[in-house]
Simulated scan of single mutants.
Amino acid sequence: MDSLLKHMVDMTGHRDHAMLDISVISAVQELARASQARVLTIANVRGQLFVRPRAAVGAGSPARMVELADPSNPGEPIASFPALAACIARHESNADAIDAEGNHTLWMPIWIGDKADTCLEIVNPTPYTSDTIHTIGGVVSVYRNFQNLLDYSERDSLTGLLNRKTFDDQLAKMLHSSGEQEAVSLPPGETERRHHHEEEKQWLAVVDVDHFKHVNDKFGHLYGDEVLILIANLLQSSFRAQDRVFRFGGEEFVVLLRSTTLENAKKIIDRFRINVEQHDFPQVGKVTVSVGFTSISAYDAPVVVLGRADQALYYAKSHGRNMSCHYDELVSSGQLQTIESNDTAEFF
């Protein structure tokens, strides 16, 4: 009982999803005496469900977050886990299976309404008793409730996107990740790998809905809100699962793109812009967006990164709208001058 209470105190003391994940798998691994416990993400990619690990802990080893070697990889198809797939399809609270080595795997989806995008996986060489499942179920309930509280504090109430308050923490993590990548040293002669590594960067894009004031003035704020909700949906469907999308307020959105090349960043951003251009918004008709984006470097302050993306956005807005503009290309072509202050930004 003391161990269970200790884990409950630890879990509810965090204000960060990653640390909450670490706490819950540490708790279930110890309480179930499991050989391994993982937090899995269940991602819906173009109508297909995929499973990928988010955090893991083994007996005798510390819990850790799991970083995929290829961030664009959505994971394994859920069909690779038949018992879990059936559990999700039937909206059940748990499922178990025995593998070829005789290990027992217990899956416990985290249901929020009728959706489960997180699942706990516990592996044990022996069967689970009803008492163990009951105890772990209690831990899962606390985890789900606290995850809900974190989601509520981190998300915009209108669109469901991550909010401005959450952005600062996410950008700091990306800057730290970018710094670690830039610090990687490769042996002499591995120029091809170095070139590939230098091409893949983190990116920040600022999105602004064109002529949004006109939408509100002509159709009213209810239709304006519907436009923002639909734009948010298009952002989520157009960008990748590992990217992060935020609403900054009003008609402004920000996207953090993880580990991709300039060419891919352009394709992903333009895919979103074209999806908006081709979408038929009820009553309003056609709506377009302008985008400014820039690469993220660990050597730049967050205000500088935001300022550069916003300068590129300002250029797009003042040169015809419905465009996406890359800050560095605008500077190298002489269409923008390098300024480190955020003179055009509306964020501060």
Rank of each mutant, 00 (worst) to 15 (best):
D99V: 04
E101A: 15
G102E: 02
N103M: 13
H104E: 07
L106S: 02
W107H: 14
M108I: 14
P109V: 04
P109W: 04
I110W: 00
W111T: 04
G113F: 04
D114L: 11
K115V: 09
D117M: 05
T118D: 02
C119I: 07
E121C: 14
E121T: 07
E121N: 09
V123R: 08
P125K: 04
T126I: 00
P127I: 04
Y128A: 02
T129Y: 09
T129C: 02
S130Q: 14
S130N: 11
T132K: 11
H134K: 14
T135F: 04
T135Q: 13
T135V: 15
G137I: 05
G137V: 10
V139I: 15
V140A: 15
V140I: 14
Y143D: 10
R144W: 09
Q147D: 14
Q147Y: 13
S153E: 12
R155F: 01
R155G: 03
S157P: 01
S157T: 14
L158F: 11
T159K: 07
L162C: 11
L162H: 12
N163V: 09
R164H: 12
T166I: 00
T166E: 08
T166W: 07
T166Y: 12
F167Q: 13
F167L: 15
Q170W: 08
A172E: 14
K173P: 00
K173F: 03
M174R: 13
H176E: 14
S177N: 13
Q181W: 05
V184D: 00
V184W: 01
L186I: 11
E190M: 12
T191M: 09
R193G: 00
R193N: 03
R194H: 09
H195V: 13
H197G: 01
E198S: 12
E198I: 11
E198R: 14
E200Y: 06
K201I: 05
L204E: 00
A205L: 02
A205S: 02
V209Y: 10
V209R: 03
V209W: 11
D210P: 03
K213P: 03
H214T: 12
H214V: 09
N216R: 02
D217P: 06
F219I: 05
L222H: 10
Y223R: 10
G224F: 09
D225F: 01
E226K: 14
V227L: 08
